[in-house]
């Protein structure tokens, strides 16, 4: 329960000191461990099932200044009908858009069961006053977002103002109401694994339902080692509090094979309870078509061409 963990932390005499006690990360060890997950061989039937699971975990994303209502509608259609020449395919998990596009997406998706995620809190920079961020969040939720993807204040985090970051996340969580909150750490701007771990701990204690690697606007975005650090933070948090937290790597995952490696990692770090789209998501735009091409390759035995798959 959220409020439970909040109380627990505010009981600490010095919360700020508490977060600087997050475990240190062995960088070489993490990178080595992450590379091992890529050595599993997944073929035939299990590959096909894995690919369908990946498709079902995708947050189909468009976050561009040039987004129009037409683009969002087209993306929603793609979400509901990934590839009609293969009947019975699962849909993606959610559509991820800017707050101004939530209403359009809501109307387009209807009762398809596909969730609407909206970025908020002055995405992607997060450089805005707190009340603006809260209004941004409330607007997205009011428009109909089921999930809110917020960014943390990386500047404050680097300055060591962990309380500020914590309080901000907690305030946004409150503004979300029923909507699930994904907290974007923007790991590409954090610099070290130690900081990624610390930011993960802060986000989870402050009430995040999901922790997410990146906005997709900064390179490097999601990598396997950084995701492993966050998955281990989720595991430790679960052992400590009994509360499950979701994970969303975003940006840079555009090939099916890599997505399957991520699934292996989730299974081996967190277990099968996390292997569904309630607890694990891929933030991606081009991954969906690659997954569809691989599924069609498994079905037809013929290597596919991007020309025969809809551009989303």
């Amino acid at each position: 329960m959220v409020s439970g963990s909040l109380t627990m932390l505010s009981d600490l005499p010095d919360r700020q000191a508490g977060f600087s006690l997050s475990p240190r990360i062995d960088q070489v060890g993490v990178e080595e461990r992450a590379s091992r997950f890529t050595k599993r061989s997944i073929k035939k039937e299990s590959k096909l099932n894995g690919l369908k699971l990946v498709l079902n975990m995708i947050d189909l994303t468009t976050l561009e200044g040039k987004d129009t209502a037409g683009k969002v509608k087209q993306l929603c259609y793609k979400a509901m009908h990934p590839h009609d020449s293969y009947p019975g395919l699962p849909t993606v998990a959610a559509i991820c858009v800017y707050p101004s596009m939530v209403k359009v997406a809501k109307k387009a998706l209807g009762d398809s069961g596909i969730k609407i995620a909206s970025v908020a809190t002055a995405f992607p920079g997060g450089q805005a006053p707190k009340d603006v961020k809260i209004r941004d969040t409330k607007y997205a939720v009011h428009e109909g977002a089921d999930e809110v993807d917020m960014v943390i204040s990386r500047g404050k985090f680097h300055a060591g103002e962990y309380n500020f970051v914590f309080d901000e996340i907690a305030a946004i969580k409150e503004a979300c109401g029923e909507a699930r909150l994904k907290v974007i750490l923007e790991t590409g701007e954090l610099g070290t694994f130690d900081k990624v771990r610390r930011a993960s701990d802060i986000a989870m204690h402050a009430g995040a339902d999901f922790i997410k690697t990146s906005t997709g606007k900064i390179a490097p975005a999601a990598t396997m080692p950084v995701t492993l650090v966050m998955l281990e933070a989720i595991r430790d948090f679960y052992y400590k509090t009994g509360r499950m937290i979701g994970m969303k790597p975003a940006g840079g995952i555009s090939k099916s094979k890599l997505a399957l490696h991520y699934l292996v990692m989730v299974k081996e770090v967190l277990g099968e309870d996390w292997l569904n789209n309630h607890w694990f998501r891929f933030g991606a735009s081009s991954l969906a078509n690659d997954v569809l091409m691989q599924i069609m390759k498994e079905k037809t035995g013929v290597y596919q061409s991007a020309n025969y798959f809809s551009v989303d």
């Binding site: 013929v302 290597y303 596919q304 061409s305 991007a306 020309n307 025969y308």
Partner: peptide, 8 residues
């Protein structure tokens, strides 16, 4: 056969 049936 792979040279000929690749869709791309």
């Amino acid at each position: 056969s792979w040279f000929v049936d690749h869709m791309d």
